[in-house]
């Protein structure tokens, strides 16, 4: 049960964002720019960053939702599973491996990111903007994961819920649905 009363038809993050829309708006806008805005990193690659951080923060809701989004964007589910288990063995570019490792360091703490980890990413061709966005996406998911679990929002267990949510964030992005969420009330 959530620590505060949240709309029961909106589990996970959505109920929290509806509970406090003044704070939700900038969080949504920031996410939309970072994960869906113009970038030299693909949307799938950016979802991998979100997933690996959520996985290491042991946030089941965010990990499952962003895995679903990454799988849809990449067109397969092997890469995301491998990234969670062993970045070096995953079928992603050397640059992505270096960026995902930076994201994992950010998950531990800001201070855990070393000059060496950043140099490796640069040597693999990562730009300053890619490094910046990777760090900020990783930091943003440290916010989301704590928000979702810190208030004990509901984590659905049925896979269909995450299939639906993955499709929603792939097709509609991260801004609030124009019609709101009343249509999800049973």
């Amino acid at each position: 049960m959530p620590h505060i009363p949240l709309p029961s038809h909106l589990p996970g993050i959505t109920g929290l964002l509806e509970y406090s829309q003044d704070t939700a708006d900038p969080i949504r806008e920031l996410t939309q720019i970072l994960l869906r805005g113009d970038s030299t990193l693909s949307q799938g690659e950016r979802e991998l960053v979100a997933t690996v951080v959520s996985h290491n923060n042991e946030c089941t809701f965010c990990t499952t939702a962003h895995t679903a989004a990454a799988d849809l964007l990449l067109g397969e589910s092997v890469t995301c599973e491998m990234v969670k288990k062993d970045i070096d063995a995953a079928p992603v570019s050397s640059k992505m491996k270096a960026l995902l490792k930076i994201a994992k360091l950010v998950q531990q703490s800001g201070k855990a990111v070393t000059e060496e980890a950043v140099s490796i990413a640069k040597a693999e061709g990562a730009t300053d903007l890619e490094i910046h966005d990777t760090v900020l996406i990783a930091a943003l998911f440290c916010l989301y994961n704590r928000y979702v679990d810190g208030l004990a929002s509901v984590t659905p267990t049925n896979p269909e819920f995450y299939e639906y949510l993955g499709e929603r964030i792939v097709n509609h992005g991260y801004n609030r649905l124009p019609q709101g969420y009343d249509h999800l009330k049973k």
Binding site: I102, L105, V106, S109, G110, K111, V113, I131, H132, V135, L136, A138, A139, L140, C142, L143, R146
Partner: peptide, 10 residues
Amino acid sequence: CMFNRYVDGL
């Protein structure tokens, strides 16, 4: 936890 990581992570 986001702002701190952003500032120190870069």
